[in-house]
Write a protein that binds this DNA or RNA. Structure first.
Lengths: 125, 125
DNA sequence: TTGACATGAAACCAAATGGTATCGTAATTA
DNA sequence: TAATTACGATACCATTTGGTTTCATGTCAA
């Protein structure tokens, strides 16, 4: 799988659904490899490799505790993703396309996050 | 390459650096395949396949004009990415990690986009 | 209408990816 | 001390991915 050769980037790391599940799982609490693997049907080794990819991208940190290795989320590299996305903010600011997709979203926070950045500037006045 | 079998998702589509370059390029204006390829060193066919992946993810739209095919950006699917990212907002709200990476960013809009969502709720009071 | 242009489709290839099973080793516990 | 647990390392495998070259087809222009 991902042979930690030369640093995976965050874009590649989150491309895999299993790794996105891992990030979500570790968002709740720090967990050992065995416990983590218990949440997946694939082998422990496979999960471990995915964790390695995430670690390469800096999205998780590991800590040895006795014979187990605890992994925890480090969301910091996601800021790069957020930065990249910000280049496209201008395309959906004040656009109906924002409503088009999430008008019936069950998560109110989602709509809030779509409010245009311009709001901040208005507040600063 | 990407054999358009069963719909590529946006996470996979943006994982490749070439495809991110394509999105950036098409953000400025609609362009034909040949013109697009002129911006890359790889073959036209290779570029065309990347465009196919992006089209599968809904990130670009194509339109036949005579003998050429014009591609243009459709940023709408990026909202899914934005939605996914919003699940991690809570981790860097009011955190120094926000400053840690971009304190010397040359783009002021970047820092603005990092202001916490909570600001909105306070405004509602 | 004849040739040049724009593009997609195929066939092919090397390398990366996602997965498995097996083994070695350090830490824990009986 | 001996068995068990937790994990990484390795070797291996099938499929996907990113790229190439070649060919077929539709469109435009002389």
């Amino acid at each position: 799988m991902a042979e930690s050769a030369s640093k995976h980037d965050v874009f590649q790391a989150i491309a895999d659904p299993t790794r996105r599940r891992l990030l979500r799982l570790l968002g709740d609490q720090e967990m050992s490899v065995t416990i983590i693997s218990g949440h997946f049907t694939m082998s422990r080794t496979a999960v471990s490799k995915h964790l390695r990819v995430l670690a390469d991208a800096g999205l998780v940190k590991d800590q040895k505790v006795g014979r187990e290795t605890r992994y925890r989320l480090d969301p910091e590299p996601l800021l790069e993703l957020k930065k990249w996305l910000s280049n496209y903010e201008r395309f959906w600011e004040n656009k109906l396309s924002v409503l088009k997709r999430y008008v019936e979203s069950d998560d109110p926070a989602v709509m809030e996050s779509f409010l245009p950045l311009r709001t901040y500037k208005e507040n600063e006045k």
